[in-house]
C-alpha cells in the first residue's frame, strides 16, 4: 500500500469525521449543561434539508448554511421548551424531534421540488467548494510532507476547518471562561448554580441554542459540502454515532475529536474494500464494513470502554426545592 492510498483514506476520514465532530460538540454543550439530546440526528437532518433547499434557491452555500442553522435552532427551541420550561422528559422530546424531522423534510421537499423527497443537485456557489491552502500547489512536490499537506490538510471545504477550530474553542469556553464554569456547574448540580444567584433556565437555554447552531452547521455540511443535495434520511444515524463518540470521549472536547476521527476512519475504511484486500489479502463483504461504526457504537454504549460518568444532573429537569 502506497502513501497516496493511505492519504486518500485519511483524507476521507477527515471529511467523514467532520459532521460527527460538529454534532458531538453540539451534544457536548447540551449535555454538559444537563440536557440530554438524542435529537442531534433530527436537527442535523432538518438543517441538511433546509440548507440544501435554500442554497439551491438562493444560489449561495453560505445563505444555505444560515437557513440550516435556523432550522436546527427551531428544533432546539422546541427541545428547550419541552425539557427546560415544561420540565418534560428529555428522551421523549428528542425522539419526537427525530421523527418530526425525518417526516417533515421529505414531505416539504416533495411539495417544494417534486423530485421524490429530495432537493435538486447543487452546483457552483450553491455548494461549499474545497479550499486550497496557501502554497499547497508549490509544496506538492516536496517528498512525503508535500503530499500530506496537499492531500490531507489542504483541499477541504471551509466547514471542515470551522469544525476543527471548534475543538480548541469549545475547550477554551468550557475551561477558561465564566460561562463555561457555570455551564459545567449547571450540568452537575443546578441547585448550586441557583443558590449562587444565577439563572439555571437561562444557562440551559444558551447551551441548547449553541447545540442547535453546531447541529445546523453539521447538517448543512452533509447536504452542501459532503454531498451536493438533500436526500431522504441522509444523516444516516450520525447523530447517534456522535452521541456514542461523546460518551467515548467522556464529555471532553479534545477526546471528542479523537473519538470522531476514529468513527470517521471506520466509515472511510468501509468505502475502500479494495484497501483491505491489498493489505490483508482477503475480500471483505462491503456491507460488513459499513456496519463497523455501528458495532463500535454498540460496544461503547454497552460500557466496554471504561466507565464514563455523565454529568450528574443530566436528563433531570431542575425543580427548585428548599
Amino acid at each position: 500500500m502506497d502513501l497516496s492510498t493511505i492519504l486518500q483514506v485519511l483524507d476521507s476520514t477527515v471529511r467523514l469525521a467532520t459532521p460527527l465532530l460538529l454534532a458531538c460538540l453540539a451534544g457536548l454543550f447540551s449535555e454538559r449543561a444537563g440536557i440530554f439530546d438524542i435529537g442531534l440526528e433530527g436537527k442535523m437532518l432538518a438543517a441538511a434539508f433546509l440548507s440544501a433547499a435554500v442554497a439551491y434557491t438562493s444560489g449561495s452555500a453560505w445563505v444555505g448554511l444560515g437557513a440550516g442553522i435556523f432550522a436546527s435552532l427551531l428544533l432546539s427551541g422546541i427541545h428547550g421548551l419541552a425539557s427546560i420550561t415544561f420540565r418534560g422528559n428529555q428522551l421523549i422530546s428528542g425522539v419526537a424531534i427525530n421523527f418530526l424531522a425525518a417526516g417533515l423534510t421529505v414531505v416539504v421537499a416533495q411539495s417544494w421540488f417534486g423530485q421524490g423527497g429530495r432537493t435538486p443537485q447543487l452546483a457552483g456557489s450553491a455548494r461549499f467548494e474545497p479550499i486550497t491552502l496557501p502554497f499547497a500547489d508549490a509544496l506538492r512536490e516536496v517528498p512525503v510532507l508535500g503530499p500530506i499537506y496537499y492531500e490531507l490538510i489542504s483541499g477541504h471545504t471551509a466547514l471542515v476547518y470551522i469544525a476543527l477550530l471548534f475543538v480548541p474553542l469549545t475547550w477554551w469556553v468550557l475551561y477558561r471562561t465564566r460561562f463555561g464554569l457555570r455551564l459545567r456547574a449547571v450540568g452537575e448540580n443546578p441547585a448550586a448554580v441557583d443558590t449562587a444567584g444565577i439563572s439555571v433556565v437561562w444557562l440551559r437555554y444558551m447551551a441548547v441554542l449553541i447545540c442547535g447552531v453546531l447541529c445546523g452547521i453539521a447538517g448543512a455540511y452533509l447536504a452542501t459540502a459532503l454531498q451536493a443535495s438533500f436526500v431522504k434520511d441522509m444523516s444516516a444515524g450520525r447523530g447517534y454515532i456522535a452521541l456514542a463518540a461523546l460518551i467515548f470521549a467522556k464529555w471532553r472536547p479534545w477526546y471528542a475529536l479523537y473519538a470522531c476521527l476514529l468513527f470517521g476512519f471506520l466509515q472511510a475504511f468501509a468505502l475502500r474494500p479494495d484497501v483491505i484486500q491489498t493489505v490483508f489479502g482477503f475480500k471483505v463483504n462491503a456491507q460488513l464494513l459499513d456496519v463497523l461504526p455501528y458495532i463500535l457504537t454498540v460496544i461503547i454504549l454497552a460500557g466496554f470502554v471504561g466507565k464514563a460518568v455523565p454529568p450528574r444532573a443530566g436528563g433531570q429537569p431542575y425543580v427548585k426545592e428548599r
Binding site: 464554569l181 456547574a185 452537575e188 448540580n189 441547585a191 444567584g197
Partner: peptide
C-alpha cells in the same frame, strides 16, 4: 449546594466571578 467534581476554588468563585 456544591458542585462535587469542581475544586474548592471553582465552587467559591461560581456565581461571583
Amino acid at each position: 449546594k456544591l458542585v462535587e467534581n469542581f475544586t474548592v476554588l471553582e465552587n467559591v468563585v461560581l456565581g461571583a466571578e
